[in-house]
């Protein structure tokens, strides 16, 4: 009974989510913000699997995001491929890169792992800026509209309002994938490797293989976000590898709390709503985002959700008359 009820609630929430931009007035700016929130949330979920489940901090995820966007931009402008084919290509390129990065970093842990993945991002940035095949410092412009022709019906996204169903669909698919991953054997193994590598090894889990597999799930997720971002912007450049996307992902993953399904989505929404509707200019926004990251890690170890839970527990304890009585009785 409870699971049926739960399924209905989840479905209702999923349907309701589609009407969020309409509920906020349905203006062009609202749809643009919602599409970006969905795209960046998908990007952040890829990193979330590494940070929350595997317990390592990958600073190389902007590379997967950029690889999806670059594959899409190159194949749609040069070869005229449709979004379906560029989607497949984006995932394939990201998985190939994930294998490469995964192999290089297989035996590295903690900050050496992070150092090397950070280096991967900077190396990719210098390559993207200098390599003319990737558009060099000019980037790649003229990415065609998101158009799918399926015989009788065809879909063509001119504005962000048109693109919203695609972005929302991608977000739902990602949420389903993340929750399925956490219930899967691989998700379980990743958590064991994270919390107790020795015990994991003793129970027959190969930590290195697990890490590689999680990378192979995580990278295409972030790349799928890059795929849609290329269509949304119609122009991409090496800026995709700038610190902004890295800090955005990291903040979104830690600010609300770890291992909560909706946390990265809420984190991205918080950041984007501030940037799009309450902006103080690029540099001040940068300071706000950086401070949000610092404060959530240095002072709110469980994120906003953890802090709220701790507060609620404290209030409940002080309000609970039964417990106060019991304490008094114990004292007498």
């Amino acid at each position: 009974m409870a699971t049926v009820f739960g399924t209905i609630a989840v479905l209702a929430l999923a349907v309701a989510g589609f009407f969020v931009p309409a509920a906020f007035g349905g203006g062009g700016a609202v749809y643009s913000a919602c599409v970006l929130i969905a795209i960046f949330a998908v990007m952040a979920y890829g990193l979330d699997l590494i940070v929350s489940d595997l317990g390592e901090v990958s600073l190389g995820h902007p590379v997967f995001f950029a690889s999806g966007a670059y594959a899409t931009a190159l194949l749609s402008t040069e070869a005229g491929l449709s979004p379906v084919l560029t989607f497949v290509a984006s995932l394939a390129v990201a998985m190939a890169l994930a294998l490469l990065v995964g192999f290089i970093t297989l035996r590295l842990r903690e900050f050496v792992f992070s150092l090397v993945t950070y280096a991967v991002t900077v190396v990719a940035l210098t390559l993207a800026e200098n390599w003319s095949a990737l558009g060099g410092s000019d980037g790649i412009a003229g990415i065609p509209l998101f158009t799918v022709d399926a015989g009788i019906a065809s879909f063509r996204a001119v504005t962000d309002r048109d693109l919203w169903p695609v972005a929302y669909g991608l977000l739902l698919a990602t949420l389903w994938l993340v929750s399925a991953f956490r219930r899967s054997r691989l998700g379980n193994a990743a958590l064991k490797v994270h919390l107790n590598p020795r015990l994991a090894t003793m129970s027959g889990i190969d930590p290195q293989k697990t890490r590689l597999m999680v990378f192979l799930v995580s990278a295409p997720m972030t790349a799928a976000a890059g795929w849609l971002y290329a269509y949304q912007r119609a122009y991409i450049s090496a800026d995709l590898l700038s610190p902004y996307f890295l800090i955005l992902m990291l903040t979104a993953v830690v600010i609300i709390g770890r291992r909560l399904l909706l946390a990265p989505l809420m984190g991205v929404a918080l950041i984007l709503v501030q940037e799009k509707f309450f902006s103080f200019g690029g540099d001040v926004d940068r300071i706000i985002l950086g401070c949000a990251l610092i404060v959530s890690l240095a002072f709110l170890p469980g994120g906003i959700a953890g802090t709220a839970r701790a507060l609620a527990a404290r209030i409940r304890r002080s309000d609970d008359p039964a417990r106060t009585n019991a304490k008094n009785e114990g004292a007498t």
Partner: peptide, 25 residues
């Protein structure tokens, strides 16, 4: 260490913003 690492990344980002305001970009 992991949290320290991310916090220092955040500090770097803040410093970049502060410098852009103080010294121009």
């Amino acid at each position: 260490l992991v949290s320290i690492m991310i916090v220092t990344l955040g500090f770097g980002y803040v410093l970049h913003g502060v410098a852009a305001i103080a010294f121009g970009s």
